[in-house]
Simulated scan of single mutants.
Amino acid sequence: MEIRHLRYFKVLAEELHFGRAAKRLFISQPPLSRQIKELEEELSVKLLTRNNKRVALTEAGKHYLSECEQLLNGLEKAKQQCQQIHLAESGIFNLGYISSISKQRLSELLKQIKELYPLLQVHLFETSSQKQLTALEQGKLDLGIVRAPIIRPMFTQKSLYEDGFVLALSNSRGQKINDDLRDLNLRTSSFISYNSEYAPVYHQKFLEICSRLNFTPIVMHECNTMQSILELVAYDVGIAIVPKTAQQCGIASDIHFLDIPTSTDIKTQIIMTYLSDNPNKLLITISELIYNLFK
Rank of each mutant, 00 (worst) to 15 (best):
I177K: 08
V166I: 09
Q204T: 12
T262I: 08
R105A: 09
S159F: 07
K62H: 10
S193I: 04
T49G: 11
I145W: 01
P261M: 04
L124F: 08
I177T: 05
K176I: 07
Y291R: 12
F206R: 01
K176A: 14
S276A: 15
S211T: 09
T188C: 09
V146S: 07
P153M: 06
M226L: 11
S100D: 07
S128C: 05
S172F: 06
H221A: 08
K10V: 14
Q83T: 11
L72S: 05
I290D: 00
R212E: 06
T49F: 11
S211Q: 15
S193F: 02
Y8F: 14
N224K: 15
Q132A: 07
L47F: 09
K10D: 13
I266E: 00
L258C: 03
E197I: 12
C249M: 13
I229G: 00
V122I: 10
L47K: 03
H63L: 15
I27Q: 00
N214G: 03
R24E: 09
G144M: 04
T285E: 13
L275W: 08
E208W: 07
S107N: 15
Q84V: 09
L16N: 02
T268N: 05
L160C: 06
L57V: 09
Y97F: 14
L16R: 11
L167W: 02
E41N: 10
K23P: 00
N224C: 11
P31H: 07
A246W: 00
L48G: 07
N292F: 12
S170R: 05
M220Q: 12
